[in-house]
Every structure is written in structure tokens, then in C-alpha cells.
């Protein structure tokens, strides 16, 4: 029997999500046994031509060339899965979407004319159909193995869309917002990290993006009315690693007075 062909593609990103595959030290050789790693430049110089059974896509679309490339990748893939906040919501680099990119280019590069870039950093789903989106900045490597395993076995991935609060309760954390008055994005943030930040005594900063149907207005009302958080700070809290995800984008907009 021929093995399913796996490809790993990169767009604008930090490489952390694809590194999560190499960080599965206990599972890596088993994964490499279950699939044919056909395209994965961070790990191998050998290239097997498509089409591919599963394409994992990391990173966001930020150049005119990216738009053409993602179309070709979609055409050559049976299943396309985005991994991480960049591919799923535009990533931290989507902060450019709220500024003038020409000014940004001039701020970083002495010769802006050498730089070819789009005005906005956008998620993969703005350009092609995506079969599954895995959240996180970075993704949780155990969830990544779960998603791969689910698609290889023709079942639905078990990656709950409830909030970080549920994970906090299951972990037995004491609520940092109720007990210490620390602003926390946990109530509106998609689960997956295992409630890491509250377990380390800080508020969630939303790196897994919005949960299913988040009530962001109610949360920010609590922050501003009872925790003394200023509007610009609310805006900055929502405008981070998933700044361009719809519900976070809108909530930030409501607090953008500048």
C-alpha cells in the first residue's frame, strides 16, 4: 500500500508551528512511518512531486506572489490544513493592516523600493478553501498530531472550540481575574494551550484566537468598569497575535480612539 503524501508549506511566519512537528520527539519517527514526507524544506532537501494527500500550511499571505502560490498549493492538495495563528488569522504581522504599509517599509528598510509587499497580511482562508484550521501561536503539538491522525483515519479532529476558562477549571487553576483582578482574555479565547498563562500566574493574552461565539463586549466591560483597564489597553490586548480574526478585530475597533 502506498503511504499518504504529506507536504508542509510556509508563508509569512516564524517557522514555530512547523517546528512543532520536529518537536514531536517521541512521535516523529512514527509519523514519518505512517506518511511519506513529500515536501518539508525545513526538515529535508528531497522533494517528491504532487499532488499531495495532506498539505499543512503555515504563515499568512503578504506578497503578490503568495496569492498565486496558495492557489497552486490548493489545486495540488486533497486536504489543506492551516496550522497556527498566521495561517488562520493573519498573525502578528497583521498589525500592519491597521497602519500605512509604505510608512512601515520606510521605517524598517533604507531602500523601500526593494520590498514587494501587500497592504494587508491575510489568513489562507481569505484566498482558498481550507479543510481545517488549527489554532494557536504556536499550535499545540499534541493537537497537531491529533489533527493529522484524524485526517489519516477519516474522522473529525478532537480540538474543542470552548474557551480557555474550561481548561483552567479542568487544570484546577484559581481564576486570576476573580482572585487577583488580573485582566485575562481566557473567557473569549479558544482552548488548546491547556490554560498555560493562568497556570503561570498571568492573564491569558489570546494567542489561540477567538473561541466559538465569544462575548467580547461583556468581558471588556468588566475590564474597564471593574479592573481599571483603559480603552487603549483594551485595544492593544485584542490587537495582537490574532488581531485580524473577526471578533477580536471588531472589539479592538470599538476601543480605537486614535
Amino acid at each position: 500500500m502506498t503511504k499518504p503524501k504529506l507536504a508542509v508549506w510556509k508563508f509569512a511566519s516564524c517557522d514555530g508551528c512547523q517546528l512543532s512537528i520536529l518537536d514531536c520527539e517521541d512521535e516523529l519517527l512514527a509519523v514519518a512511518d505512517a506518511v511519506e514526507i513529500a515536501y518539508f524544506p525545513e526538515a529535508t532537501r528531497s522533494v517528491v512531486s504532487g499532488p499531495y494527500d495532506i498539505s499543512l500550511v503555515e504563515g499568512s499571505v503578504t506578497t503578490p506572489h503568495d496569492i498565486q502560490r496558495i492557489q497552486r498549493i490548493r489545486k495540488g492538495s486533497k486536504v489543506l490544513i492551516t496550522i497556527g495563528a498566521c495561517a488562520t488569522a493573519g498573525g502578528i504581522q497583521a498589525l500592519r493592516n491597521y497602519k500605512n504599509v509604505k510608512e512601515f517599509t520606510a521605517a524598517v528598510y533604507a531602500r523601500p523600493e526593494y520590498i514587494d509587499t501587500l497592504d494587508k497580511s491575510t489568513p489562507i482562508s481569505d484566498h482558498v478553501f481550507v479543510d481545517f484550521e488549527l489554532r494557536g501561536c504556536p499550535v499545540n503539538k499534541y493537537q497537531l498530531v491529533e489533527v493529522l491522525s484524524a485526517f489519516l483515519n477519516g474522522r473529525k479532529p478532537n480540538t474543542p472550540a470552548y474557551s480557555v476558562c474550561i481548561e483552567c477549571k479542568r487544570r484546577g487553576n484559581i481564576c486570576v481575574m476573580v482572585s487577583q483582578g488580573t485582566p485575562c482574555l481566557g473567557p473569549v479565547t479558544h482552548a488548546g494551550c491547556g490554560a498555560l498563562c493562568p497556570a503561570y500566574n498571568r492573564g491569558c493574552y489570546g494567542c489561540f484566537g477567538p473561541m466559538e461565539t465569544p462575548n467580547t463586549a461583556s468581558l471588556t466591560n468588566e475590564w474597564t468598569q471593574h479592573l481599571g483597564v483603559s480603552s487603549p489597553d483594551v485595544m492593544r490586548a485584542f490587537r495582537s497575535y490574532n488581531a485580524y480574526a473577526e471578533s477580536f478585530r471588531k472589539e479592538a475597533q470599538n476601543h480605537d480612539n486614535g
Partner: peptide
């Protein structure tokens, strides 16, 4: 040809305490 991500530009206007995570 890593596409430019403009970190130095969008750090402007963020708080000092955001820098390690960003």
C-alpha cells in the same frame, strides 16, 4: 525572500512589557 513582517514598525506604540512576547 522571507516576506518582510515589519516587527520594528508595529512595535511602535506598544508597551515596553509587550516586547518579550511580541
Amino acid at each position: 525572500f522571507e516576506p518582510p513582517r515589519f516587527f520594528e514598525a508595529f512595535l511602535r506604540g506598544r508597551q515596553y512589557k509587550d516586547a518579550p512576547d511580541i
